[in-house]
């Protein structure tokens, strides 16, 4: 069984680890706000945010790859969602790609905005990963409770944290069973088998949720009390 999937490294003894979880929560919330409140933050602000992040990661003795590689999961989303920005932002035209008689105008301002959106998304996630990597999850939940985050959201987070491990275990089991039987077949055939595997995972999670709910009711949980 795998552990510390989300808050790996959070039990180390770096300077940020020792800090009160509430202070860290507020600091990260302010940084995220500062990064994202402006449509086009000046370049020096972005550079400062990146520098601060790098310094914090190094001071906490976190593996660099852990924070920066993990934050990269947001890139495909940011790249796809922002893909229209270079075409739809008004400004100085730099490129006019055309195909099949249709053309579109790419502006310098649009490209800058696109790059800004991607960096904002990347830096924001990297800061959240830094928070998770320096704060045990339960300490984070306690600090959110201190800030009066509704109990409903906290139990939602707590469930997500708990069952992500069970889910990862189930994925690993499916994967092992799959590799054990699919040897020497072509990639296309393997992808065809992926559909049923994902389906099986969905059904298992759904049934798990039903059993957890039944177990909660068995111990006097009152759905109307929250």
């Amino acid at each position: 069984m795998r552990h510390e999937f989300l808050d790996k490294h959070s039990e180390r003894a770096g300077p940020l680890h020792r800090l009160d979880a509430r202070a860290k929560t507020v600091a990260v919330a302010l940084i995220l706000l500062g990064l994202n409140v402006l449509r086009m933050p000046p370049a020096w602000l972005g550079a400062a945010a990146a520098g601060l992040l790098l310094a914090a990661v190094i001071a906490s003795r976190l593996p660099l790859g852990y924070v920066f590689r993990r934050a990269a999961v947001v890139l495909p989303f940011a790249v796809i969602i922002g893909a229209f920005l270079p075409f739809t932002t008004e400004g100085r035209a730099v490129w006019y790609p055309a195909a099949f008689g249709y053309g579109a105008l790419v502006t310098a301002e649009g490209l800058r905005l696109y790059a800004t959106v991607i960096s904002k998304a990347y830096l924001s996630l990297a800061y959240v990963i830094l928070l998770l990597a320096t704060t045990p999850f339960r300490a984070l939940l306690r600090s959110l409770a201190w800030f009066r985050v509704p109990a409903f959201f906290l139990s939602l987070l707590s469930f997500t944290y708990r069952y992500i491990f069970v889910l990862v275990d189930e994925i690993e089991r499916l994967q092992r069973a799959w590799t054990a039987r699919y040897f020497g077949r072509r990639r296309a055939a393997q992808f065809r088998a992926l559909g049923p595997a994902v389906g099986a995972l969905f059904v298992r999670s759904y049934e798990r949720a039903e059993r957890v709910w039944a177990a909660m009711l068995s111990r006097g949980y009152d759905p109307n009390a929250v």
């Binding site: 999850f137 339960r138 939940l141 707590s158 469930f159 944290y161 708990r162 069952y163 069970v166 798990r208 059993r211 957890v212 039944a214 177990a215 909660m216 068995s218 111990r219 006097g220 949980y221 009152d222 009390a225």
Partner: peptide
């Protein structure tokens, strides 16, 4: 009537053991 489920993972979902055991009494 205390019902113990077959799969412990259905009953244990808190970050700490004490919170899982306290879940029932807190609901009371």
């Amino acid at each position: 009537l205390g019902l113990v489920f077959q799969d412990p993972d259905d009953m244990l979902f808190m970050p700490r053991l004490e919170d899982d055991v306290a879940f029932g009494p807190r609901n009371l």
